[in-house]
Design a protein around this nucleic acid. Structure first.
Lengths: 176, 176
DNA sequence: ATCAATTGTTGTCGTCAACAACAATCTTTC
DNA sequence: GAAAGATTGTTGTTGACGACAACAATTGAT
């Protein structure tokens, strides 16, 4: 135990030993055989943020796994989808539409351009901005991505139920 | 434009100029007055992940803003809530229950212990593990946090509707 | 007694949001 | 038409966060 005590664990052992008086002796639970399933969450249940965080974690992992063969992540997919549906958009417009910072979009487009999915074309009307387009390769690739994304969406429907998924989309439509 | 061209922008200007032939002349949209509201999302609408991402972004920002006066973030709140409802839990049990990695929980508890909200007490039965408890200060603090969190939850209800919020919680209950 | 598993910890890596600065360029205003 | 202000793409930094991999201390099983 030497290393754990002498290293930088600021106050774990020490403080705890001092503050003992008020330490309620672990109300019946303590560290017995906690499988992690019988632990109450108290106020946490009923918090939308907590449920959404867990859900988003699950849904992103499934998306990444389902599109692992093509190595496309959710944000990259969203960028290509928007650009594909609206060719010629500026980076600013895409960033604003997707709720991404334009600073972040720079790197996203760098990688997508390296893979020859997207191209930044100098705008004719505004020499500051770039008109974004899918390349020919990007268009055929996006078609495949959409098939895989649809498969991912089926996973979601299996997980929470087909009608629940649609209800969810309807509830959250104001954020898209 | 010197710096933008000569610096490390790998292929923006150069490549784009070369790949010109196939560049469809921006189908009517181009870079006119894009306010960002009239941009189609195509397949993106209908993707649960996208809607959930945007929602989680909003909900976390509101949570952080609503609890800014006490400087508590969502994850910190979830830890204190679970520990408060289940005193004596080990770090492993808390991490598993909340879907946090135990490596990450270490830092979370470090900060909460520095602020005297939580204390790690050496377990009597297992000298490896720590029994987690709220301090007296932590208990009174958590009570205030819960009031502020309830206010945040009201913001959510205002945003998506009271009944929609409850429907949402019901749909995502399997993830909590 | 020995070997595998567990617990807390440290460290690294990559993703992501949030800011702040900057050069180039556009737009407005006088 | 020139100066002032706003916009666009870019670079950089910061911090929260998830994922992994190691490690020492300890426990439990063989």
């Amino acid at each position: 135990m030497a290393s754990r005590q002498k290293t930088s664990r600021k106050a774990a052992g020490t403080k705890a030993a001092i503050r003992r008086p008020q330490a309620r002796a672990a109300n019946g639970r303590a560290q017995s055989g906690d499988t992690g399933d019988d632990i109450g969450l108290d106020a946490l249940v009923g918090h939308a943020g907590y449920a959404v965080r867990r859900f988003q974690l699950w849904i992103f992992q499934d998306f990444i796994k389902t599109l692992a063969t093509v190595d496309i992540r959710p944000t990259q997919y969203s960028v290509m989808t928007v650009v594909g549906a609206n060719p010629g958009l500026s980076q600013m417009a895409v960033a604003k539409r997707l709720g991404i910072e334009r600073a972040r979009l720079v790197h996203l487009l760098d990688s997508l351009e390296e893979r020859d999915f997207v191209s930044r074309i100098a705008s004719a009307t505004d020499r500051r901005s770039h008109a974004l387009h899918l390349t020919a390769r990007g268009r055929t690739a996006l078609a495949q991505f959409k098939r895989l994304a649809a498969e991912h969406e089926r996973h979601v429907a299996e997980k929470i139920g087909k009608e629940n998924r649609e209800r969810l989309l309807q509830i959250l439509a104001c954020f898209t």
